[in-house]
Nucleic acid binder design. Structure first.
Length: 187
DNA sequence: CCAACGATGGTCT
DNA sequence: GACCATCGTTGGC
């Protein structure tokens, strides 16, 4: 059973933490979410939605539980889960997964055999899963991409977000302690 | 191991 | 025309 509206409607920081240890499923591929970042509408200059709605960030202002996928540096994609109240513009970036199902296909797409290198970064996991702009603004409440519960109760580390020029000091990055599939260890 | 750097194209001003 | 919520390669220890 995929997680539903109630799960995605919790406050964005709570959702970013709650997503750790959950399973992302996309067709025949799956992985455990081990690293996330929260992007807030208020007092967060690092958030794409911080300067209002544009064609690109429009999905962020839609209902919680939709995807927001964008192209970064002309060659990679990042996937977010829209959160917060509709019209606010908040989301959770999925930064890393522990690969579970469909590993051979991920290895082929990523051109590496090493499990630790398949999904240990936002651009890597979209490449491994074949997620592109075609998967922007899709609902995770139904369809072939969804989030499922697990029995995992992770120990969560809070840190600052990665790769930003603004809002870099906010403690909005979360990852599972001692997990080797996290993109980068840092304070 | 680590830091520096360039690829590459959509988006916004 | 500048800016990126990145990554793989390169060259140094």
């Amino acid at each position: 059973m995929p997680l539903g509206k109630k799960f995605f409607s919790q406050p964005t920081i709570d959702l970013a933490k709650a997503l750790l240890g959950k399973r992302l499923i996309f067709g025949d591929l799956s992985g455990i979410i081990v690293e996330t970042e929260a992007y807030l509408y208020k007092d967060d200059p690092g958030c794409h939605a911080s300067r209002g709605m544009t064609p690109r960030n429009k999905p962020m202002f839609g209902p919680a539980g939709n995807t927001y996928v964008y192209l970064i540096y002309g060659m990679y994609h990042c996937i977010n889960i829209v959160s917060g109240k509709e019209g606010e513009g908040e989301a959770v970036l999925i930064r890393a997964l522990e690969p579970v199902l469909g590993i051979p296909l991920m290895q082929k797409r990523r051109k590496t055999q090493k499990k630790e290198h398949l999904c240990s970064g936002p651009g890597k996991l979209t490449q491994a899963f074949g997620i592109t702009l075609k998967h922007n603004n899709l609902s995770l409440l139904e369809g072939k991409m969804r989030i499922e519960n697990t029995r995992i109760k992770p120990e969560i580390i809070t840190a600052t977000r990665i790769g930003l020029s603004e809002g870099k000091d906010l403690p909005l990055r979360f990852y599972i302690k001692d997990n080797k599939f996290v993109s980068k260890i840092q304070v």
